[in-house]
């Protein structure tokens, strides 16, 4: 058990380190370096940046400095917004992104899993067909198409929800729907096929042969096992909800981190790009770690295997 936790923790740290390194050197590989802009900078900002980043230092020293900054949770100043730090940009956008992201994640689990179960239990009957048709549409139509069509229909034509912003609680509907649509479908399909596969397992036959009631067989023996693959993909789901927020926040004009990120790309705000990437990665690593721990609870074999190593 401890072995497994330590192993996962280590993997998380190594990955995070790899991400920081990769991001740093990628951004410094930009022709001309990250801090030489196409536009001329005001000399004092240039000086401040130079001072902050010791730009005349050799690259490895800059790298160590940046690493030290990240470790003390300081992502440095924004390069384009004078006087604003990357930390402040993230802090500003975080509530919006967190709220929509968390709601989307809840939708994914709370809708995707039950839909998959209903489909599997009604295999080849109409509820199954219905769920599969919707889920197939959901995985095939890109989220930005869903978002724009929904925006046009529900906000512009019908006026049921605001076209942008989250001031009104109804403003959450479309962004969350667009953000989670693909993953609800994906999880529904996964949960369905996983449950169908579990239902075929020998131990399900054993459970029935023991005379257990149908509900016990299904929920106690079937569901838990079939949820293991679903839990496995929750890490990537979080990652994709985060990156998905780039377009969604742009379409619905939400002032979240994703919008800031896209903006900083357009502005070539390299420190912001670097900082937000690392922030995303850190959030993701933590989520993956949580998922790994969840996995440990669901599947006793994991603990055993890790300890055996």
């Amino acid at each position: 058990m401890t072995a497994y936790v330590v192993q996962r923790l280590l993997l998380m740290l190594v990955t995070l380190f790899a991400i920081i390194t990769l991001t740093f050197f990628l951004m410094h590989a930009v022709p001309g370096g990250p801090f030489t802009s196409e536009k001329m900078l005001q000399p004092e900002i240039q000086a401040a940046l130079n001072a902050k980043y010791h730009l005349d230092d050799p690259l490895w020293l800059q790298y160590l400095n940046y690493l030290r900054g990240v470790l003390s949770l300081d992502l440095g100043p924004s390069f384009k917004y004078a006087g604003m730090s990357v930390n402040e940009i993230i802090a500003e956008g975080l509530p919006v992104t967190m709220k929509t992201g968390a709601l989307a994640l809840i939708c994914v689990v709370a809708l995707g899993v039950p839909l998959g179960i209903v489909a599997a239990l009604n295999r080849n009957r109409w509820p199954d067909t219905l769920v599969m048709v919707i889920a197939t549409i959901g995985v095939a139509v890109p989220s930005y198409v869903i978002a724009t069509v929904a925006l046009y229909v529900f906000a512009l034509r019908l006026g049921w929800v605001p076209t942008f912003g989250l001031d009104d609680w109804r403003g959450y509907f479309l962004p969350v729907f667009a953000l989670s649509g693909f993953w609800i479908s994906f999880i529904a399909r996964l949960a369905r096929s996983s449950l169908l596969e579990t239902l075929q397992q020998d131990y399900m036959m054993t459970a029935k042969a023991k005379g257990l009631k149908r509900g016990t067989v299904l929920f106690k023996h079937g569901l838990r096992n079939s949820l293991i693959p679903v839990v496995t993909v929750l890490g990537p789901v979080v990652a994709n909800l985060l990156t998905g927020s780039f377009v969604i926040e742009q379409i619905f004009a939400l002032p979240g981190i994703g919008r800031h990120f896209v903006l900083s790309i357009t502005n070539r705000d390299y420190t912001a790009i670097m900082g937000i990437t690392i922030f995303y990665a850190a959030v993701l690593m933590v989520m993956i770690f949580i998922v790994d721990m969840l996995y440990l609870v669901l599947d006793p074999r994991i603990k055993y295997r890790a300890d055996a190593k």
Partner: peptide, 11 residues
């Protein structure tokens, strides 16, 4: 485990 879309963007 790295969010790959981010890396496509960075590249």
């Amino acid at each position: 485990t790295i969010p790959l879309t981010l890396y496509v963007i960075l590249i």
